[in-house]
């Protein structure tokens, strides 16, 4: 029996539904010693900004029960150096490159960045990171406001035909409301979830463990929250969803797919097991063979309630 793993995310066709999440896979070269990059469904880059960005002061990470906090602050070489030095590495793998972008305050930067990337054929899709909790420039994130999300996605949509993915924040009252705003504005797909904001304290020093005090929580600890949000959004919007949040193994990935996600992204899991993503691809095949499922589409959204 031939196992079909291919899925579509907007116009983008993936050979399998397993990708790696922005900020957890560098620019792919960091993982070449440990796995065959060619096996991945897609690679989402570390978020790129218009100008090079130094990021936040350290300590930037700390471990928490079944998870970790990070506040990197979008450190990146800027779009020019990214295109010149980093994109080629992903190109050589033949795996679709999804470039994550963000502004450093002015939403106009999203449009400038999209125009730049739109001309590059190696860029398969653009992910709008409107949900990074670790930049100080604004008190409220775009993805915490339905109207702001709508306007941003709408203005970017006007300047590109490439697949547009909007990455949402879980730090909201109703994620469905934001998801619908992105859908109405013409987003092709949604990525959810970004990290949950959290804090951890060194009780001996009476100091926060992360220099920027508040940071983003990721890892298995947030998985139930992520699965719930994916399920809610899949039920109430029509867009394909890329589900992520604490996926460590095949069963975790299956939870998201069954909840309705068309694809999954491995994030923090890459740090603990660099080949988690390729093991999950193999694991999905095994699961399907054992359960006599020949197309992954039969798994997607198969939750019985």
């Amino acid at each position: 029996m031939e196992i079909k793993l291919a899925v579509n995310i907007g116009k983008l066709k993936l050979k399998n539904p397993v990708m790696v999440a922005s900020g957890t896979f560098g620019y792919a070269e960091e993982f070449k010693d440990f796995m065959n990059l060619k096996e991945l469904g897609a690679i989402v880059t570390k978020t790129i900004t218009l100008r090079p960005r130094k990021g936040n002061p350290g300590p930037r990470t700390c471990e928490t029960p079944a998870g970790m906090l990070n506040s990197i602050g979008l450190e990146n070489p800027g779009v020019d150096r990214f295109i010149k030095e980093k994109l080629l590495i992903i190109k050589r793998t033949g795996v679709p490159a999804i470039v994550s972008i963000a502004s450093e305050g002015d939403p106009e930067e999203f449009i400038v960045l999209t125009r730049r990337l739109d001309k590059i054929k190696e860029v398969s899709a653009i992910e709008l990171n409107i949900s990074c909790p670790n930049i100080r420039e604004k008190s409220k994130l775009i993805s915490q406001d339905a109207q702001a999300t709508y306007e941003l996605v709408r203005s970017v949509r006007k300047v590109t035909q490439k697949t547009l993915i909007t990455k949402l924040s879980p730090n909201v009252t109703s994620i469905v409301e934001i998801a619908k705003a992105a859908q109405d504005a013409g987003s092709d797909a949604l990525s959810l979830i970004n990290t949950l904001t959290g804090m951890s304290i060194d009780v001996y020093a009476h100091k926060p463990k992360i220099a920027s005090i508040i940071a983003g929580l990721s890892g298995p600890a947030i998985k139930p929250v992520a699965v719930r949000m994916v399920w809610e959004v899949c039920k109430q919007t029509k867009l394909p969803v890329i589900g992520m949040g604490g996926i460590m193994n095949t069963e975790d990935a299956l939870e998201f797919l069954i909840a309705g996600a068309s694809a999954v992204s491995i994030g923090t899991g890459n740090f603990i097991n660099p080949k988690a993503s390729v093991e999950i691809i193999a694991g999905l095949k095994n699961y399907m063979t054992r359960n006599k499922i020949n197309d992954i589409k039969e798994v997607i959204g198969s939750l019985k309630t």
Binding site: E30, F31, G55, G58, T61, P274
Partner: peptide, 14 residues
């Protein structure tokens, strides 16, 4: 420095 990945991906230990 505190490290999350140890392989250069997370930029936690800069």
């Amino acid at each position: 420095e505190h490290m999350a990945c140890g392989i250069g991906a997370c930029l936690g230990c800069v």
